[in-house]
């Protein structure tokens, strides 16, 4: 069990968007990505603190997944550069990014259905000479490493309570179990930075608790975690640092207990109308005026009509 210590200071200076970190593992600059005319990601500067758990939050469509895709080489940015552990990663293909120790999971879980759970796990392992064409043909050359990999895999599966499923097809797992498998599989690569895109989505509450434990464990083992999550309870429970994205920009950064009260964050989630009552017509009108003048007009007429009724 990790000892309860006073939280270390992660940033240099006042917390805020783009603030410098004491020991950043990943530094990104001017990363932009547009789809057609729409800017999905426009991150000026961001640093991810090493050895900590960082949550990347923001409303739907904020660009979190797109930002993940860019950083891990699954998508090409329009511009930008980022450095992981001192190595420039812009333009590096996804598989090389993973080999450098920056491994990710996907929002839409990618279990390899027709491979067994154990084979899914083994696939994540590194330094297996049997993965080369000629090496593969001579089992004696890779048998030993395969046995080690299998041990490593079974150990992880046991930790994630999937060991009884080791020989089942991954396709037979439930949605939550697939999330666990994907996370365990990513750990087979022995990464330095683990990037999880909504690890909790679809996981039942009973499993949530143990998943939180697993993520905290990663930190105790010396890994850095960056995760995207909508569940604020989870963010508050395990994150050391929170980065908030909205409309492609980073709008706030800070410690979890303070950043949630940042007006920029409340705006990002609720728009500027978070204190308006959408149950009343006047409240609806206020919002509609911002969105759609035509709709606003209709609501105005409705209000007039009601006033007319009340007057009678």
């Amino acid at each position: 069990m990790p000892k309860e210590t006073t939280k270390p200071v992660l940033q240099i200076g006042e917390p805020g968007p783009g603030v410098a970190k004491v020991d950043p593992i990943l530094v990104a600059d001017n990363v932009t990505r547009t789809f057609g005319g729409m800017t999905a990601v426009d991150v000026q500067h961001v640093e991810i603190p090493r050895g900590a758990i960082t949550a990347l939050i923001g409303p739907n469509g904020a660009g979190k997944t797109t930002f993940f895709n860019l950083l891990t080489g699954f998508d090409r940015p329009d511009s930008g550069a980022w450095v992981f552990d001192g190595q420039d990663l812009a333009g590096v293909p996804a598989y090389k990014v993973a080999r450098k120790g920056m491994v990710r999971t996907f929002q839409l879980t990618k279990a390899l259905g027709l491979l067994s759970v154990l084979e899914n796990m083994r696939l994540g392992a590194t330094k297996q000479s049997g993965e080369h064409f000629f090496g593969a043909l001579f089992k004696s050359t890779w048998k030993k490493r395969e046995a080690d990999i299998t041990d490593q895999a079974m150990e992880l599966l046991a930790r994630f309570k999937l060991d009884t499923k080791a020989n089942d097809y991954a396709a037979s797992l439930s949605g939550g179990q697939r999330k666990l498998l994907e996370m365990a599989r990513a750990l087979m690569t022995k990464p330095e930075l683990v990037m999880l895109d909504e690890p909790m989505a679809g996981v039942n509450p009973a499993l949530t608790q143990s998943l939180l434990g697993h993520i905290l464990n990663l930190k105790t083992e010396g890994m850095t975690v960056l995760f995207v999550e909508h569940d604020m309870h989870m963010v508050r429970t395990i994150a050391d640092w929170v980065i908030v994205m909205a409309e492609g920009n980073i709008v706030a950064e800070g410690y979890p207990d303070t950043v949630m009260n940042d007006p920029a964050v409340i705006d990002a989630y609720l728009g500027a109308h978070h204190d308006t009552d959408l149950g009343s017509l006047t409240g609806q009108l206020e919002v509609a005026q911002d969105i759609d003048p035509h709709l606003a007009h209709e609501i105005e007429e409705e209000i007039e009509e009601e006033a007319h009724h009340d007057g009678k």
């Binding site: 891990t72 598989y95 993973a98 491994v103 990618k110 390899l112 696939l123 599989r185």
Partner: peptide, 16 residues
């Protein structure tokens, strides 16, 4: 076989 199932997953694990 992993590529057959989902090539992005395999890519994410560092395979070319």
């Amino acid at each position: 076989k992993g590529i057959r199932e989902d090539e992005d997953a395999v890519r994410a694990l560092g395979k070319n």
